[in-house]
């Protein structure tokens, strides 16, 4: 049989290669977008510098040096911005622009798409953690971490926020997702005990401890202060991840 340019040779690439392609594509798109980059890196670094400077003039009744309080908190903020806000907005617009429908007729299965998104989140988070850690270390951060504990908290926090982000993107229209994801981010940044410890919120601190933002922030602070595994924070994050996944599974429509 003669072979032409279009002679059929159909077939899917191995799943792991498809997932890598999807993760690399989505992380590149996230970093290309100016607003996303602002959210991912610029705002956390500004909060870090501003917070440490501000703490010198205000009494925040912190138990540690400001830089040691703020550096883990800002890492938590960065994880939240990517896993929740960026993921929700990107997914909302993928649905709106028919990207997910287009991928639906490609060999990439839904599970591969989800894994690709997780891979992209972790890649972007890695980049954020590198940039923020370098800035914090330059500013005099002296962590005494358990890196394993920090990693587990980051993964649990990513799972909790990503499942909630997908839930928002699944039930709202793209524009409403954009607004809601940014609003929730701002509210949690200000009042969710992510950058400042829940103990700094007075009586309200008891509530913030049980928010995913407070659990992620407190968990990372404890992991970086003393290297202990913050079991209570981890438990809160796992419960949020379970609740978010259940909600998303019931409501999410890819198209």
């Amino acid at each position: 049989m003669s072979t032409g340019l279009f002679t059929p040779r159909p077939g899917a690439a191995p799943l792991w290669r498809q997932v890598c392609a999807q993760a690399s594509m989505e992380s590149r798109l996230m970093l290309r977008n100016g607003e996303q980059l602002l959210l991912a890196v610029v705002i956390p670094v500004m909060v870090l510098i501003g917070g440490v400077e501000g703490a010198a003039h205000l009494d925040l009744s912190l138990s540690h040096r400001p830089i040691d309080e703020f550096a883990p908190g800002v890492l938590a903020l960065a994880v939240m911005s990517t896993a929740f806000t960026s993921l929700a907005i990107a997914t909302g617009f993928e649905r709106r622009y028919g990207v997910i429908k287009r991928l639906g007729s490609s060999p990439l299965p839904r599970s591969g798409l989800l894994l690709g998104k997780v891979g992209a989140l972790l890649l972007v988070e890695l980049l954020q953690i590198l940039v923020i850690s370098v800035v914090a270390l330059v500013m005099g951060w002296e962590p005494h971490p358990s890196l394993l504990a920090a990693l587990v908290v980051i993964v649990a926090g990513t799972a909790a926020f990503a499942s909630l982000g997908l839930f928002v993107a699944g039930v709202l229209r793209a524009e409403a997702t954009l607004a809601a994801a940014n609003l929730v981010y701002l509210l949690l940044m200000a009042g969710g005990a992510v950058v400042l410890p829940s103990s700094a919120y007075g009586a309200f601190g008891g509530v913030t401890r049980f928010l995913p933002s407070g659990a992620l922030g407190d968990g990372l602070r404890r992991a970086f202060w003393s290297g202990e595994v913050p079991w209570s924070s981890l438990l809160v994050l796992v419960v949020w991840a379970g609740a978010g996944a259940a909600l998303t599974a019931r409501t999410f429509k890819w198209e």
């Binding site: 040779r9 290669r17 594509m25 977008n33 622009y97 028919g98 429908k101 490609s106």
Partner: peptide, 27 residues
Amino acid sequence: LQDGGAWSGVRAMEMLRHIARLHAEPL
């Protein structure tokens, strides 16, 4: 598709390369 699309910020050839990578023996 009539209504299926692409990411608004993706470059034309980048999109084509991406879909090609999902296949075993693409053009």
